[in-house]
Computed example of a mutant assay.
Amino acid sequence: MKSYRVATIAGDGIGPEVTAATLKVLTEALGASRITFEDMPGGAGHYSRTGEVLPDDTFAACRDMDAILHGAAGLPGVNYPDGTEVGNDLHLRLRFRLDLYANMRPIRLWPGVRSPLRDFDGGGIDYVVVRENTEGLYASRGAGVLLRGEMATDTLVVTRKGTERVARFAFDLAQRRKGAPRDGRARVTVCDKANILRSYAFFRAVCDEVHGDYPGVEIDYAYADAITVHMVKRPDFYDVIVAENMFGDIISDLGAATVGGMGISPSAEIGDSHALFQGAHGSAPDIAGQDAASPLATILSGAMMLHWLADRHEDADLRQAGDRVEAAVGRVLAKGDHVPRDLGGQTGCNAMAEAICRALSEEDKTK
């Protein structure tokens, strides 16, 4: 029976707390003999002490191990000379060096969680934003031009290769899912501004070409401004949304707000050979060390990691463990006895992890 090694970077702020909670839950679900978590240094705090945000040994571990689990990175005032944040650079370096081209952000309304969209309380929101992760406007990071303090420019980059592969990722994902909650149809929505910019018209055209290989999946289109309205008024229409880097970044945060916030929003950055999993939230240094953070986004990211490893290695036990973690989170939230503070409750980080572990243990006893 195969065992797995996961490079674990707890990082800054609440990162160590939510990471420890996640390791507890994943170990309960799978057992210590199947997966080993190897703690590696990195982040803004490490940079402050050593001058390195991503040490060579940490990168080597991330490259060579089976997956990467990250807590959070970033601290106030820890910036590079150009003013950009050091913390973001940790996963950005991993993203580009390991070619993690597809950012996957599930948007799901869990039982027991109250949505700001009252019409959807009790369910009806369950889609995934797939964000192209290596190109778009963010490709200009570090390469933009600031001219004599008077003018700044950044370049939007869209390539055929980059768009084809993220579009194929999105259509493959739609084939595996159950379809949109409204009508059960497998659907990929292309989010762009094809009516204004040639780069986005090209993005749409390449997605159209890829769609030709997926006759069982519908294709839909939405401009980036209009989709912000549709995600609020008819979120049940969506199944998979694929978008350029910056647009995907923005709309995935909006989606998270409709299902409870960033504290319950998992994410994965996936390439052909490597993948990084982390909660979509920041490092929240203002509540670090107070046991006040919600570990749910990181725990659900850990479940995504188990699913990715299961698909990659054809390991049914990992698939089952990931399903069990998600089901345990759902049962705990639906029961309502343990609710994290960002969702209106009073349960701390450790207690949330313990409640989910109990739900897993109780499931085992009923088998």
Rank of each mutant, 00 (worst) to 15 (best):
K2D: 14
Y4R: 04
Y4C: 06
V6H: 05
T8D: 03
G11P: 09
P16K: 03
V18M: 06
T19H: 11
T22K: 02
T22R: 01
A29V: 12
G31S: 08
S33V: 09
T36D: 10
F37H: 00
M40P: 05
M40S: 08
A44S: 10
G45K: 14
Y47C: 06
R49D: 08
E52F: 14
I68D: 00
L69E: 01
G71P: 05
A72P: 14
G74D: 01
G77P: 07
N79C: 15
N79D: 15
V86W: 12
N88G: 15
N88W: 14
H91P: 10
L92N: 13
R93E: 14
L94Y: 10
L94K: 10
R97P: 08
D99T: 09
D99Y: 12
P106T: 08
I107C: 13
G112Y: 08
G112L: 11
D119L: 11
F120L: 14
G122A: 09
G123Y: 03
G124M: 04
I125V: 15
I125Y: 10
R131G: 10
R131F: 11
T134W: 07
G136H: 07
S140M: 00
A143Q: 11
L146N: 13
L147S: 14
R148F: 15
M151G: 10
A152H: 08
A152Y: 11
D154F: 02
R160G: 03
R160Q: 05
K161I: 07
R165I: 06
R168C: 04
F171Q: 11
Q175A: 14
K178S: 11
G179P: 02
G184N: 04
R187A: 07
K193F: 07
A194K: 15
N195I: 05
N195V: 05
R198I: 12
A201K: 15
A201Y: 12
F202R: 12
R204Q: 09
R204P: 01
R204W: 06
A205G: 14
V206Y: 05
C207W: 09
V210P: 03
V210Y: 01
H211T: 01
G212A: 06
D213Y: 05
Y214V: 06
A222E: 05
A226C: 11
R234I: 08
D236L: 06
Y238I: 13
I241M: 13
I241F: 01
V242N: 04
A243E: 03
A243C: 13
M246V: 14
D249Q: 08
I251C: 07
S252Y: 02
D253Y: 01
A256R: 01
T258E: 06
S265E: 03
P266F: 15
D272R: 13
H274M: 09
Q278N: 02
A280P: 00
A284G: 00
D286K: 02
A288G: 05
G289M: 12
Q290R: 13
P295I: 09
L296F: 02
A297Q: 02
T298Y: 06
G302N: 09
A303V: 10
A303R: 11
M304E: 04
M305E: 11
L309I: 01
A310M: 11
D311N: 15
D311A: 15
D311F: 08
R312D: 07
R312M: 09
D315C: 11
D317L: 12
Q320M: 12
R324I: 02
A327Q: 11
V329K: 00
G330Q: 05
G330I: 04
V332H: 08
V332Q: 03
L333H: 00
K335S: 05
K335A: 08
G336K: 03
H338L: 02
H338D: 07
Q346W: 07
I356R: 00
